[in-house]
Each structure stands twice: as C-alpha cells, then as structure tokens.
Computed example of a mutant assay.
Amino acid sequence: MEREKNQILYLVIPCYNEQEVLPETSRRLKEKMESLMDRNMISRDSKIMFVNDGSKDRTWEMIEELHDQDPLYQGVKLSRNRGHQNALLGGLMTAKEYADMVISLDADLQDDIDVIDQFVEKYYEGCDIVYGVRSARTTDTFFKRFTAEGFYKIINLMGGEVVFNHADYRLMSKRALNELANYKEVNLFLRGIVPMIGFKTDVVTYERHERLAGESKYPLKKMLALAVDGITSLSIKPIRFIVFLGFMIFMCSILMLIYSLVQHFLGNTSIGWTSLIVSIWAIGGLQLLAIGVIGEYIGKIYLETKERPRYIIEKVLR
C-alpha cells in the first residue's frame, strides 16, 4: 500500500572521532536534504541527527556548532563510548519519536548518499525496511573482500539471517523502529536483528566510495569482534558444535577400545596402555559433552537475563 508523500525523514549518523569528516559530511547531507525538500519528497521538518559516541576529539563541539548555525542539524550525546551498534540504536530510538522514516549511515559518507532518493521512493511504495547493498567490492583489498564475504556466509551458515553485503545503511519506518525497540538483547547486532522484524522490505544497490578523510574506525580487531558478536547474538550453533565435537571424541574412545581389544587378543598390547588411552579419550569426550550441554543453557540465559542499559544519553540537541 502506497503512502502519502512529504513525510518526515531523519538521517541518523553515529560519530566517533569524526572531526576531520564532519564539515564535508554535514555540507553534503544538507544539500541532499534540501534537494529532497525542494521536490516535496520529504517534509521541511526533516532533520540530520549526529550521535556522538564518546568521541575524544572536537566531534561533539562541532555538532553543537552545526546545531547553533542551522536547526536542520540535531545531536545526541552518549555518556560514554558504547560502540557503533549501541550508538546507532540510541540514535534510532531517539529519532523514531519524531520521524516517519529514518535512514542510518556512517559519517565518512562511503555509502552513496545519492541513493537516498531511492530509499525514500521505496518507502512511499509501502516498504517498511529498505537495505542498502553494495553491488561490488572493487574498492576493497583482496583480504578485506575475502574476509567480509566469508563473514556473511558464515553468519548464514550458523543460522543467522543477514542480507549479503549489507552493513548498516538502511531505511526503517516508524512502525519497524517501534518493533525494533522490543528487542532487548545486550549483545547487539543490528544487521541480524532487523531482518527478524519482517514487514515489506526491498533492496537498493550502490557503489561504495573512498573515505572522505581520517582512518577507518573498524580495523581488523574490531571487525573480528563484530563477527564474534554477530555469531553469538544470532545463533547457539557454536555451542552445539562443541556438543557434536564431544560426541565425536567419545565415539573415538569407543573405537579405540575396540582396537585395543583386538590388539589384546592378537597379543600385541602393552600392559596398562589400553586402560590409560581409553580413559583419556572417554573422559575428555564426556567433559566436552557435559560442557556443551551446560553451555547450551548458559548461552540462552546469558542472552536473556543481563538487561544492562545498552546506552545512556547525556544530552539531546533539539
């Protein structure tokens, strides 16, 4: 079902030490928003919301300056650094109170902002979630391309439902954001949670650009941490793998027992060797099996019971 046009759009941009890119980013985003407003695609009440994730440079001061110069810019300041996913969620939950639709993107503008028009058009066509998907990874090194594509395949293999080559460049309607608010897990991985929401979805493809300035905030260490968070927050298959491994080792102990008995009857055994080897394999396998079974329950409890605040908002510029 198509929607009426001229609705309120918020852009939510998490920022961590982005003082080098903010001037150019804010200028380009303002031009894009004014272009959409002039064509009556979005309301004049639409905003650009920067979320400061505990930056150590002048990022927050620059956001305050932008807000003072133009009410188009708004700011959310977290009390401390909580990581990209939590900062993004904090911005989304703040923006959903005022916007009809929200688009999340990174401050470095590697994601092509010219496709924002397509996001909005698909929203008016009735989509509640629109994913920005990279059409190719030609700007990546071979190592990054190999590891990134492997990450998406492993996530899906482990039981997680993620959109291939999609990061956090997406549009979500107010209805979708209200449903996202019902997901309370602390181990946050939005790329896997958002597809769980359902509703009508679509995809917009784009080419990713080079970073405007500064260095990437996602070095290999953080990428690996994100991968671990993604797998553990979406699936308990790693724990089940431990159970499977324990079972296989236990079966090996049975085979070793049979082998030892055969060797015994053939007269090719050493005294004490059979009992020692069988004991080591059997106990080791049973220990892994027990740890896996206990871990199955602990993993589920871990995901459900912590209930720590995922972020704390110190200040909102409106």
Rank of each mutant, 00 (worst) to 15 (best):
E296T: 07
G83N: 08
D100E: 03
K5W: 01
T94L: 07
Q85Y: 09
S235C: 12
I48E: 00
T59N: 01
P195N: 14
V21M: 10
R28Q: 13
K96Y: 03
Y10S: 04
V21R: 11
V293G: 00
D57I: 05
K300N: 11
M62V: 01
Y311P: 06
V102S: 00
R211S: 10
S173K: 12
A227E: 06
Y183P: 02
T94G: 01
K217P: 05
T141L: 06
E65P: 02
I258W: 09
M101S: 14
Q74I: 00
V262C: 04
V278A: 01
S173V: 00
K174W: 04
D38S: 15
G198R: 05
T139G: 00
S173M: 06
N40Y: 13
N165Y: 00
G75H: 00
V228G: 01
M93D: 13
L88F: 01
C252V: 06
L257E: 11
S104V: 09
G295M: 01
K184C: 03
S55I: 04
A99G: 01
G132W: 04
D70M: 03
Q74E: 10
L72C: 04
L180M: 10
T274R: 15
D53Y: 02
T139V: 15
P195Q: 08
G91H: 07
L11I: 13
I154W: 05
A87I: 10
Q110I: 14
G91D: 10
I242Q: 13
Q263P: 04
P219T: 00
D68H: 14
S135R: 11
A225I: 05
E161R: 13
S275I: 13
Y311S: 08
A176G: 09
R308E: 14
L276E: 10
S46N: 06
L289S: 13
R134K: 15
S55Q: 04
I294T: 04
F142Q: 14
A290G: 09
N52Q: 03
K47M: 01
R240L: 14
Y123I: 02
I236G: 12
S253M: 02
R3S: 09
N40R: 14
S216M: 07
T205P: 03
V76R: 05
D108S: 07
E4V: 11
L245I: 12
P238H: 06
A282S: 15
C252R: 00
F265N: 10
F146D: 05
I13N: 12
S275H: 08
S35R: 09
L105N: 02
G292K: 05
G126C: 04
E2D: 12
F189D: 08
I277H: 09
G295T: 13
A95R: 01
F142D: 12
I239P: 00
R318M: 13
L92P: 00
L88G: 02
Q110P: 01
I116W: 05
I103S: 02
T201E: 11
